[in-house]
Write a protein that binds this DNA or RNA. Structure first.
Length: 877
RNA sequence: GGGCGCGUAGCUCAGCGGGAGAGCACUACGUUGACAUCGUAGGGGUCACUGGUUCGAUCCCAGUCGCGCCCACCA
C-alpha cells in the first residue's frame, strides 16, 4: 500500500545501494555500445548546481540508452586538480602552522594523498544522492597507476615526435604559487591605473624622447625604445641611443612596425623580459632580455641596488618618485586598462622568462579542426563550433609544465652535464643515459609536474586502459557524447580532441552537447563570495532528487543559461506528488498489470483515447531525448500525466470502474498499463519515485525498472476516440465556464436540454451521462422537445446548442453579456479568416491544405455564430 | 577590435512562416470517491523598434536601440 503522502527521503533512501548491488550500473550487455565519459570532478569538490545540471543530463541519457538496450558505459572518476588541491592542503597546513616547504616535497605529496583518501570521496557520495548511475566499479582517478602510465607514455611519445619540447620563453607567471600557468588560466580584469609619460635623454643630442607606460617599474629592464619606421617625427633618431634614467644603461632606438604612431607618444619603451609584445620586438631587433624580477615578483639583482628586494608594486612607486625627482616624469594621466590575473591565485600575473615544457598545439590542432569541419564530431547546439574553430585556428603553444608538487612529475631526467633523457620510467631513463654516456651516471628527474589538463586530455582513452589494448577500449572508443559546459571547451574539449585524434586516430566523441550555466534567480553567476549559491543537497533534502532533476531538465533549453529559482523545484515536487497520488488512486482501485493485455485492442473509447495519446507522447519523449531537447521531453510528460491522465482520464474512468465488469476490467488493465509506461518514460528523469511506484504498484521486479525496456509506441491512433473525448472535454469545460462566469453555486446541479441532437450526439450523451453528472454538475439530460426559454445558460459545442435552465436564479443581463462577448470574439476570428479567403493572392498562392483549413474554420465559426445568435434571441424573448 | 547569443503575459521561459503558449505569481469559487504538495474558472501580451522579402512575419533578411557572454587588446 502506498503511503498517503509522498515523502522523497523515504523513496530515495537506500535505492542507489540496491541498484548497485543488483549490478544495474555495470557496463555490458550485447547491445550497441553507448558511452559517456564523466567529466571528472575535482577531488576537492563538493556538489554544486553546475554539477547537478551536468550529471543529471548525463545520467538521464545513460538511463535512457540503457533502457533502450544499449551496452551502456558511463565512465566515472575524479581529477587530481593540481593547483586547486595543492592550495587546499597548503591552506590546511598553514592553519596548523606548517608549510609545504618545511615538510619537503615527499612528505607534502604524502599529505595530499592522505587528504585525498579522507576527503576526496565527498563528491562521489553526493553524486549518488543525485541518483547518478555510472559504473562505479570502473571509477578512475587521474593519478592512478594506470592513468599515470598513460600520461608518461603520451608525454614520451609526443616528445619523440617533436611535439613536446623544452624552451626558454616568456610565460604567464603566478607570483603567489611560483608557477607558470597557461594562457587559459589567466583572466583579464579591468583595473584603474595611470599612464606615466617619461622623458628618456638621447645620447649626445641634449634632446629627450618621451615614452608612456602603465608599468613604470619595468623600465629597469628596458633594453630599447621603438618607433614606427614611417614616423617622420622620429626617423632621425633611429640608430641613436638613449641613456636609461635611474639605470644608466645605454639602449638603442629602433624602428619597428609594432610601434603605433597613433598611440601615446608614438615611441614605446621595450622591455623584452616583461612583456609579450616587447619580447617579439626584442627578438626582431636583437635586443637583450633583462629580467628584473624574481619568482616572488620582487626586483632582483639585475636592477640598481636601491630597488632590489622591493615588491614590484612598491618598486613602481619608488621608480615614479625617483623619476619625478630627476625631472624625467613628464606627466601622469589616469588610465583604465586590462590587467592579467591568475584564475586561482587572483593575483597579477607577470610575463616571466623561464625554461618550460611546451606542447605543439598548433600541429595537434589541425586534425582536431578538420574532424569538426567534416562532421566526424558535431557540437549541439551547432553554434559552438565557431567558438571552437576560432580558438583552435589561433591556438598558441601550450605551456604544460608547472612548478608545483602535486601532479604528474614530468618524465624527463637530467644527466650531470644537463643532457635530457625523456622516458616512461627511471629504469628506461637510466638505460638511455647509459647508452649516451657509455657508463652509469647519476640522474635527477625534472622537478616540475604537468598541467592538470594534460592528464584530463587523455581521459577518454586512459580510463579505458590505454595504452593497453583492452576490450573496453575497443568497444567504447570513440564515445558517443560528451556533456559539458561551454566554459571548458578550450581547457578540456579541444585538448581531448587533439590527444584523442593523435593517439587513437579517431575522435574521442561523436557529439558534444554543450549546456549553459546555472545562475541565480537574478541571472547572476553563483559564487560563494556573492552568497547566492544554492546547495543542491539542501534541495534534495527538501524536495527530493527527482524534483531537482526534473526541474533542471525542464528548465534546460538549448543555448541558454538556467536562471534557477527554488519555486520551480517546488512546482515539480508537486508534480511528483501528483504522480504519486494518481498511482495511489489506481492502487486503491485494483489496477494491476494484466498479462497478455493488448493495449491497442481495447474497446472503450476512453481507453482507446489514452492509449493513443500515450503512444504520441512516447514518440515525443523519445525524439526529444534523442535530440537533447530535455525540456521538451519533460514538458510532454508533465502535460500527459497532469493534464490528460489525471485531469481527464482518471476522472472519466471513475464511472467506468464501478460500472459494467468487462469495461471496468479493461479500464483497470489500461490504467495499469499506462502507469507502467509512464514510469518507464519518466525513469531517466526521475529514477527514484518511478522505481518505487513500479515496485509497489505493479509487482515489478525489485530494482528492476532501471533495466526495463524503453517503451515502443503502440500503433493505435484512434482518431474517433480522440474526437469523442475532445468533444466531451469541450462540453464539460464550456458548461463549467458558463456556470463559473454566472456564479452558479457549485452545489447546484442543472438539467441539460438538447433540442436538436443528431444521432452521434445522442449516443455520446447517453454514453457519458455519468461523467456529465459528475464533471459538469448536470442533473439530467433531456433530449428533443422545445428547449426552455428565458433564464438559461447556453453553450454551443460542435454546432449543437446545450441549454441549462436556471429558473429565477440567473441574471439575464450577465448571460447576455457573456454570450455577446463570446460572439464578438468569434466574429473577429471569422472576419479575419474571411478577409484571408477573400484575398485572391492567398487562395492562389498558399498551399491547398492551408486554404482548406481556413475554409473549415470559417464554416465551423459561422455555424457556431448562428447558434449563438439563436441563443441570444431566446434570451431576449 | 573579432565572435556568439538574448529582448514574447508581473516573473522565468517555450514557440520560430498560416488560429499568441506553459509554469509560477495574481483574482474568484470550492460541489467531486487519489491529490489543498489539490480542484474549477478567470484576468493579463501593438511577440524591443524601423524598414524589407512574402498572398501572409512573433518567426526569414537588413538596420537601430537595449542586455549578456567569450576571445584578443595599443604603450
Amino acid at each position: 500500500m502506498l503511503d498517503k503522502t509522498y515523502v522523497p527521503a523515504d523513496v530515495e533512501a537506500g535505492r542507489d545501494a540496491a541498484w548497485e548491488a543488483a549490478g544495474r550500473y555495470r557496463a555490458g550487455g550485447n547491445g550497441t555500445p553507448y558511452c559517456i565519459m564523466m567529466p571528472p570532478p575535482n577531488v576537492t569538490g563538493s556538489l554544486h548546481m553546475g554539477h547537478a545540471l551536468t550529471f543529471t543530463v548525463q545520467d538521464t541519457l545513460t538511463r535512457f540508452r540503457r533502457m533502450q538496450g544499449r551496452a551502456t558505459l558511463w565512465q566515472p572518476g575524479t581529477d587530481h586538480a593540481g593547483i586547486a588541491t595543492q592550495m587546499v592542503v597548503e591552506r590546511e597546513l598553514a592553519a596548523a602552522g606548517e608549510s609545504r616547504q618545511e615538510l619537503g616535497r615527499e612528505a607534502f605529496t604524502e599529505r595530499v594523498w592522505q587528504w585525498k583518501e579522507e576527503s576526496g570521496r565527498t563528491i562521489v557520495t553526493q553524486l549518488r544522492r543525485l541518483g547518478a548511475s555510472p559504473d562505479w566499479s570502473r571509477e578512475r582517478f587521474t593519478m592512478d597507476d594506470g592513468l599515470s602510465e598513460a600520461v608518461r607514455r603520451a608525454f614520451v611519445t609526443l616528445h619523440r615526435q617533436g611535439l613536446i619540447y623544452k624552451d626558454k620563453r616568456l610565460v604567464n607567471w603566478d607570483c603567489q604559487f611560483h608557477t607558470a600557468i597557461s594562457d587559459l588560466e589567466v583572466v583579464s580584469k579591468e583595473v584603474k591605473g595611470h599612464l606615466w609619460h617619461i622623458a628618456y635623454p638621447i645620447e649626445g643630442t641634449g634632446e629627450t624622447i618621451e615614452v608612456a607606460t602603465t608599468r613604470p617599474e619595468t623600465m629597469l629592464g628596458d633594453t630599447g625604445v621603438a618607433v614606427h619606421p614611417d614616423d617622420d617625427r622620429y626617423r632621425h633618431l633611429v640608430g641613436k641611443h638613449v641613456l636609461l634614467p635611474l639605470v644608466g644603461r645605454r639602449i638603442p632606438i629602433v624602428a619597428d612596425a609594432y610601434s603605433d604612431p597613433e598611440k601615446g607618444t608614438g615611441a614605446v619603451k621595450i622591455t623584452p623580459a616583461h612583456d609579450f609584445n616587447d619580447f617579439e620586438v626584442g627578438r626582431r631587433n636583437d635586443l637583450e632580455a633583462i629580467s628584473i624580477l624574481d619568482a616572488d615578483g620582487r626586483i632582483n639583482d639585475a636592477a640598481p641596488e636601491t630597488y632590489r628586494g622591493l615588491d614590484r608594486f612598491v618598486a613602481r612607486d619608488r621608480v615614479v618618485a625617483d623619476l619625478e625627482a630627476l625631472g624625467a616624469l613628464v606627466k601622469v594621466e589616469p588610465h583604465t586598462h586590462m590587467v592579467p590575473f591568475g584564475d586561482r591565485s587572483n593575483t597579477p600575473i607577470e610575463p616571466f622568462l623561464t625554461d618550460q615544457w611546451f606542447c605543439d598545439a598548433v600541429t595537434l590542432a589541425k586534425p582536431a579542426i578538420e574532424a569538426v569541419e567534416t562532421g566526424r564530431t558535431t557540437f549541439v547546439p551547432r553554434s559552438w563550433e565557431s567558438t571552437y574553430f576560432e580558438w583552435m585556428r589561433n591556438i598558441q603553444p601550450w605551456c604544460i609544465s608547472r612548478q608545483l608538487w602535486w601532479g604528474h612529475r614530468i618524465p624527463a631526467w637530467y644527466g650531470p652535464d644537463g643532457a635530457v633523457f625523456v622516458a616512461t620510467s627511471t629504469a628506461e631513463a637510466e638505460s638511455l643515459a647509459y647508452a649516451h654516456y657509455g657508463r652509469a651516471e647519476p640522474l635527477t628527474q625534472d622537478a616540475d609536474v604537468l598541467d592538470t589538463w594534460f592528464s584530463s586530455a587523455l581521459w577518454p582513452f586512459s580510463t579505458l586502459d590505454w595504452p593497453n589494448e583492452s576490450p573496453e577500449l575497443a568497444r567504447f572508443y570513440p564515445t558517443d557524447v560528451l556533456v559539458t559546459g561551454f566554459d571548458i571547451i578550450f581547457f578540456w574539449v579541444a585538448r581531448m580532441m587533439m590527444m584523442g585524434l593523435h593517439f587513437m586516430g579517431e575522435v574521442p566523441f561523436r557529439e558534444i552537447y554543450i549546456h549553459g550555466l546555472v545562475r541565480d534567480e537574478a541571472g547572476q553567476k553563483m559564487s560563494k563570495s556573492k552568497g547566492n549559491v544554492v546547495d543542491p543537497l539542501e534541495l534534495i533534502d527538501a524536495y527530493g532528487a527527482d524534483a531537482l532533476r526534473f526541474t533542471i531538465l525542464a528548465s534546460l533549453s538549448q543555448g541558454r543559461d538556467i536562471k534557477f529559482g527554488v519555486s520551480r523545484v517546488q512546482g515539480y515536487r508537486n508534480f511528483v506528488t501528483k504522480l504519486w497520488n494518481a498511482s495511489r488512486f489506481c492502487e486503491l482501485n485494483g489496477c494491476r498489470l494484466v498479462p497478455g493485455h493488448a493495449p491497442e485492442a481495447v474497446n472503450e473509447t476512453l481507453n482507446r483515447w489514452i492509449v493513443a495519446d500515450l503512444a504520441a507522447t512516447t514518440v515525443l519523449v523519445t525524439d526529444a531525448l534523442e535530440a537533447y531537447r530535455f525540456n521538451d521531453a519533460a514538458l510532454a510528460l508533465y502535460r500527459f500525466v497532469w493534464d490528460r491522465f489525471c485531469d481527464w482520464y482518471l476522472e472519466l474512468a471513475k464511472p467506468l470502474l464501478d460500472g459494467e465488469p468487462t469495461a471496468a476490467a479493461e479500464t483497470r488493465a489500461t490504467a495499469a498499463f499506462v502507469l507502467d509506461q509512464v514510469f518507464r518514460l519518466l525513469h531517466p528523469m526521475m529514477p527514484f519515485v518511478t522505481e518505487t511506484l513500479g515496485e509497489q504498484l505493479l509487482d515489478a521486479q525489485p530494482n528492476g525498472l532501471i533495466a526495463q525496456p524503453w517503451p515502443t509506441p503502440s500503433d493505435l491512433a484512434a482518431p474517433e476516440a480522440k474526437a469523442e473525448i475532445e468533444w466531451l472535454i469541450q462540453l464539460v469545460s464550456e458548461v463549467r465556464a458558463a456556470r463559473a462566469e454566472l456564479r452558479v453555486p457549485a452545489g447546484i446541479k442543472l438539467p441539460l436540454h438538447v433540442a436538436e441532437a443528431d444521432a452521434l450526439t445522442t449516443a455520446r450523451l447517453a454514453r457519458y451521462d455519468a461523467a456529465l453528472r459528475r464533471l459538469a454538475r448536470v442533473s439530467k439530460v433531456h433530449l428533443g422537445g422545445q428547449p426552455p426559454v428565458g433564464g438559461t445558460l447556453q453553450v454551443v459545442v460542435d454546432a449543437v446548442t446545450y441549454v441549462l435552465p436556471l429558473a429565477g436564479e440567473i441574471d439575464l443581463d450577465e448571460e447576455r453579456g457573456r454570450l455577446t462577448r463570446e460572439r464578438s470574439k468569434l466574429e473577429k476570428d471569422v472576419a479575419r479568416i474571411e478577409q484571408k479567403l477573400g484575398n485572391a493572392q492567398f487562395v492562389a498562392k498558399a498551399p491547398a491544405e492551408v486554404v482548406d483549413e481556413q475554409r473549415e474554420r470559417r464554416a465551423e465559426g459561422l455555424a457556431t455564430l448562428q447558434r449563438l445568435d439563436a441563443a441570444l434571441a431566446r434570451i431576449s424573448v
